[in-house]
Design a protein around this nucleic acid. Sequence first.
DNA 1: AACATCGTGGTACGTTCGTATCACGAAAAT
DNA 2: ATTTTCGTGATACGAACGTACCACGATGTT
Lengths: 202, 202
Amino acid sequence: MPKRVDHAERRTAIAEALVRVAGRRGLHAVGMRDVAAEAGVSLRLVQYYFETKEKLLLFGLEHLAQRFGQRFAARAGAAGDDPGPRATAEALLMAALPTDEESRTFHHLYTSYAVLAVHDRALAAQPFIKNPDAAEDILTGLIREAQEADQAPPGVDARLEAVGLLAMSAGLGTSVLVGQRSPESAGAVLTHQLDRIFRGRH
Amino acid sequence: MPKRVDHAERRTAIAEALVRVAGRRGLHAVGMRDVAAEAGVSLRLVQYYFETKEKLLLFGLEHLAQRFGQRFAARAGAAGDDPGPRATAEALLMAALPTDEESRTFHHLYTSYAVLAVHDRALAAQPFIKNPDAAEDILTGLIREAQEADQAPPGVDARLEAVGLLAMSAGLGTSVLVGQRSPESAGAVLTHQLDRIFRGRH
DNA sequence: AACATCGTGGTACGTTCGTATCACGAAAAT
DNA sequence: ATTTTCGTGATACGAACGTACCACGATGTT
């Protein structure tokens, strides 16, 4: 039985177990034993592949951010071979909305990590800056692209609108998460803003 | 020494201790003993006035929501005797932004509670619906008021814009909280949107 | 005056958590 | 063939947590 094992693969499997159980019961309620049970391994093995809980959480966050990127790419690709800037922007913003179970978990855990990051400098150094900044750049570029193609009025400040849209998407996501708003109504609010920013004929 | 005591006053004092220590170290790291020490009372007394930790948290959330309402009222009042709809709306949105230490704590704890509410039905029943819905109604009314006074174009959908603005404010608040964005830049994004919605001469 | 009740302190109990320790079989290295 | 390293299990440990229990003085009630 005991042979050579791919550590990266094992760590990913355990991180996914962490994400599953955290999505089910909340990140604050997750212990090493829960992760071990969910992954179908012994507590010792979780210790073995991640020496400490903090490192497990860190890796879990990275894994989550990576999966989120994949989700966005899938959404963007599903919009056609060469989706226009508007369709790509819509995919980016809608991907962040908690519509199905997977995106609910995304948003929930990302927010949990953000709350922890307020007082944990190890977490604060992680992708809370890098990742959203990248999204901001992409969205800004999409708006500028639309402006050059006469699909958006030149008067709008691309960066300011991009930042606003991303913040709006995040805020709407939270209100959907806590049950204050339906995913459909949140989507309608975003669509309304996109209609305003992306409109042709000037 | 031991005489009849005002329970409500005592509970408030303890709840404020909870808010202080949670703002300092994070809600997840707060124990009954911490609250007791911060309030300058014994652990037994915290148990006496709030029988269980869950009830303490619940009351803490109510207290926080109440203080937030006071903060908004103070901001609105500081804008003059009869502030216009634009100024009132700006006060409402800016009050939610984590600018000073108090508002940082507000936003941080409110988000913490929101995350817990995802899997705790006792918290979910609390003011996550009631409170933001009220803010939404107020803001919608302010936009309509401005439209009737020709201080906003009649074409905008007041409710849709109100929802968007509140979500944007919340989202910006989070990014300020985690250090991704400065309070000033977040304020600029909101001001930009307000400039768009509230503009006279039609 | 006797008694019940309230506010308070101290402390103990049972659980859970993250981490550390010991042990051991199988593969790889020498 | 012997020795080292790797993957794995079981279990123990110390700390922290929420809660429960016991005691007691002061106040209000009868």
